[in-house]
Simulated scan of single mutants.
Amino acid sequence: MPEFSSLPDPSALRAAISSGDPTRAMPALAGLREFPEDQTEAVVVPLLILGSEQEAFLVRSLSCSGLGVRRSEAGWAVLCRLLREDEDANVRAEAANALASYGVARSWPLLRDSFSADHAWLVRCSILAALAEQPAMEPGWLMALAREAIADADGTVRVGGTEILGRLVREQGGAATDAPVITAEARSLLQRLQQDGDHRVVAAALNGLQS
């Protein structure tokens, strides 16, 4: 771990991040990785929050990613706001991914609501990817997510939902008390999805049924 004296100057990083020039801001944000954990609250998080307020969406997106790594209550609040309010789907998608890193139990209600409200395919795919393989996801939560995903007009989102159904079949509903019901519904939906107009969805459904 580097000595604090060898770290970048926080004042210089702040100037670069707030410069309005992504070619300066992006390397400055990347440089925050050099700071040790004990500098997270004092140095790293405030600068990441500053980045989340910049005009360039790439700068905001990278800042979201950083707030998912250097987790804090202040970062959580910023990510929640960006997920709800940012005008760019790239930023909302990165915020969703970062929020998932705070743990499924905490992030699931927020991400579930966002999945229902935000129909940008990029945001929805980010939520699916962030949650689909999480061991802590309850089978009932996965089924709720899959039902919405396979009803989406975008084929890529439907593929993500179909893959979740495959997981439910593969894991036989896990330890859920209604596991047989969940598994049966997942299998039924996969059979129906074999008639989907997108060949990627059909392939994912066939793969899921072979689990």
Rank of each mutant, 00 (worst) to 15 (best):
S5C: 05
V69C: 11
D152T: 00
R92T: 04
W76R: 13
L82I: 01
L110R: 05
A15W: 06
F57L: 13
D9Y: 00
W121M: 13
A175V: 08
G197D: 13
S188M: 04
E148P: 01
W76L: 14
V159Y: 01
A89V: 02
M26S: 14
S116A: 15
G161W: 00
E73F: 00
Y102G: 11
E87Q: 08
A89Q: 12
S63K: 02
P109A: 14
P36C: 14
C64H: 09
A56S: 15
S52G: 14
R33E: 15
R24N: 15
R24W: 09
S188H: 06
E37M: 07
A100Q: 13
R71L: 12
S188P: 01
R24C: 10
D154T: 07
G31I: 06
A205G: 10
A176I: 02
L50F: 09
P180Y: 07
E171H: 08
L48C: 09
F115R: 04
T156M: 08
R14H: 10
R71G: 13
D88G: 06
S72R: 03
R192Y: 07
T23N: 14
A203N: 10
A30T: 05
D113M: 05
T40L: 04
W141F: 01
R92F: 00
R147L: 09
R14N: 09
A151V: 04
V159N: 03
M137G: 13
L145D: 06
S63Y: 03
A56E: 15
L131R: 05
E85P: 00
V43S: 11
V45S: 12
W76I: 06
A42G: 13
D86A: 12
C64N: 11
R70S: 10
T162C: 12
T183W: 03
S52Q: 05
L128S: 12
A30F: 02
R60D: 07
R81H: 11
E185S: 08
L142T: 07
E41D: 15
T40V: 07
V45A: 11
A176G: 10
T40W: 03
D154S: 08
L79K: 08
G161D: 03
W141M: 10
W108P: 03
R70G: 05
R106D: 09
D9R: 02
E34R: 15
L110Q: 09
P135A: 10
A153K: 09
R33G: 14
S52I: 00
A74H: 02
R158M: 01
G166P: 05
E94N: 12
L7D: 13
A132V: 07
V45W: 01
S72M: 05
L190S: 14
L193G: 12
P109N: 12
G161V: 00
L48Y: 05
R124T: 06
R187I: 00
A176Y: 08
V157S: 09
R167K: 14
A175L: 13
P2D: 15
T177P: 07
S11E: 15
V78D: 05
D196H: 02
D118T: 06
S63P: 04
P139L: 06
I164V: 14
D178W: 00
S211K: 11
P139T: 04
R200L: 11
